[in-house]
């Protein structure tokens, strides 16, 4: 039954033309909506995979909490210190956890590139970049949703959520924008997990500075401070555009 189905499918096609059956034309794939559809299909697939195992999220979240706890011992956190140290601790926890997660996504189960499955498909490489970026932002975001309340409790810091959300979102996008590119870069090398943090930390310095400062300003407002949230947004735009363009060069073989 299925066999006749298949035969019909193949014979129906005019074999003198190179055009796969039931496949949308070239024009449709080039449009923005096709772009968004493909990105969302990949994101949905990654989320579904991750929801099945929850390996990456749980490890990332646990690690972020551990960093928060360990730093509590490492620093002398008397009340007057907390405001100065806590934002830094929060972002170090986020960045460490992010790198853990990014490393996991490139830790190839296979010898060949972990992205080959997607690279075989007729999808623009920028689609792959944005899909992986959104996936990483969501992964890190979930960790942050877990970590922020616990941070507020154990560091006894009043967190103004309204102000913190944009800072965390922008900071996370910055980390993920660079991280997605560098994860793909590290995947080209023999020592992926080793190289990723070494390459990524120096480049994340501007994002970390801006995010920490913006978070500090939420706890103890500073007069005449730089517009950190705006800067963070500007850094995001710069890193996003460079990474989106560069991604193609990194994944091709």
């Amino acid at each position: 039954m299925s066999d006749t189905n298949m035969t019909r499918m193949t014979t129906r096609v005019n074999t003198t033309e190179i055009s796969p059956p039931g496949v949308g034309g070239d024009g449709a794939l080039g449009t923005a909506s096709a772009f968004a559809r493909q990105v969302m299909a990949i994101v949905a697939k990654d989320l579904r995979s991750e929801l099945r195992t929850k390996q990456t999220w749980s490890a990332m979240a646990l690690f972020a909490l551990l960093v928060l706890v360990v730093f509590n011992f490492a620093f002398d956190l008397r009340v007057e210190n907390t405001a100065a140290v806590a934002p830094g601790v929060l972002w170090v926890a986020f960045v460490f956890a992010s790198i853990l997660g990014l490393g996991r996504t490139v830790a190839a189960e296979h010898d060949q590139g972990p992205l080959d499955r997607l690279l075989l498909c007729p999808v623009n490489r920028t689609v792959v970049y944005f899909a992986k970026l959104i996936g990483n932002v969501l992964f890190i975001g979930v960790v942050e949703v877990v970590a922020v309340p616990i941070f507020a409790i154990i560091y006894n810091v009043p967190v103004a959520l309204g102000g913190l959300v944009p800072v965390v979102v922008l900071g996370t996008i910055g980390v993920a924008a660079v991280g997605t590119l560098f994860a793909a870069m590290a995947a080209n090398t023999r020592a992926r997990e080793l190289l990723l943090p070494v390459l990524i930390f120096p480049l994340l310095v501007p994002v970390v500075i801006a995010a920490v400062r913006a978070t500090s300003a939420l706890i103890v407002p500073v007069a005449r401070d730089a517009p950190w949230v705006g800067l963070l947004a500007a850094f995001d735009v710069i890193f996003l555009s460079i990474s989106a363009v560069a991604f193609e060069y990194v994944v091709e073989d």
């Binding site: 870069m185 390459l199 120096p202 480049l203 310095v205 850094f235 460079i242 990474s243 560069a246 990194v250």
Partner: peptide, 19 residues
């Protein structure tokens, strides 16, 4: 890959300096 790092790294310099 190295070329990409060479470019991204250089672009990072003024941003670093600024921040």
């Amino acid at each position: 890959t190295a070329a990409v790092l060479g470019i991204v790294g250089f672009v990072d310099v003024p941003i670093d300096y600024l921040s």
